[in-house]
Nucleic acid binder design. Sequence first.
DNA 1: TTTATAATTGTAACAATTACAGAAATGGAA
DNA 2: TTCCATTTCTGTAATTGTTACAATTATAAA
Lengths: 142, 142
Amino acid sequence: MEQIQNIENYLTNVGIKPSYQRMKIYEYLIENMNHPTVEMIYKDLSPHIPTLSKTTVYNTLKLFVDKEITQIITIEDTEARFDADTSTHGHFKCIKCGKIFDFSFDKTNLNIKQIENFDIQQTHLYIKGICENCKNIDKKNN
Amino acid sequence: MEQIQNIENYLTNVGIKPSYQRMKIYEYLIENMNHPTVEMIYKDLSPHIPTLSKTTVYNTLKLFVDKEITQIITIEDTEARFDADTSTHGHFKCIKCGKIFDFSFDKTNLNIKQIENFDIQQTHLYIKGICENCKNIDKKNN
DNA sequence: TTTATAATTGTAACAATTACAGAAATGGAA
DNA sequence: TTCCATTTCTGTAATTGTTACAATTATAAA
């Protein structure tokens, strides 16, 4: 399809040889912006790529991160999540339903003092709490 | 000592029975604000508490987190770090020397749109890059 | 077709964490 | 004090996420 064609070109452009597995994993990432774990990617793709190895998923994601077309999200201490959107944006995790939401924020007026002369390469903002939907469910049950 | 006496009272006040291990671990946290890992805490305390078990360190930290007198820092995906300062503040990790720096930031004007009606319980800001000291070392070597 | 190189796979190793059961400590009640 | 119940601590085993590595397979150039 068109999509896959685009992915092939895109990977080539950033210096990644577009193997079948790599294209499928990248396609999965941009179609599933729900910040999947390695386990999720492996489980969902295995039926379509029967020979797929979990090691390949790990290797491929590491490659994507190195080439800066994917970022690691460490909002939970248990396992890493991956996001094909590498722009600086925040992540909210609902502690009730577990869903992770994206949000944008203005990092220009954080007004940071102590690290003014440091070189900043990555900024991650993680917020935890209860999402609107779960809040409403709570209300109903009271 | 005075310090230990304070810790005993403090733990009691937040609803934690102040056992010897718990007091020592909490004392370690407030004396070592360098965001230690479980391994670091265990290694440093073992000589003073020969019977200490790593499981106790895990259990105790989980208890502290539950009672909200300690926060988990997940700036790296490999292992959890712990911080007895539970106020909202940012963490900078230098990718050269690995050191973690605290900094304060203004979370009032982040100007967040998409999660306005969400309940916010924790805010974590993680920044990665190169600290001033490592920057200067780099300059000298060029 | 041959050959060199790169990518993929599967297994084993590793490291952080958790589960669990028994031992030790604690704190009343008799 | 002694007895008993409960809590805490300990050590080992199990679990989980990740990485190392060697063998196999695919790719691409000569």
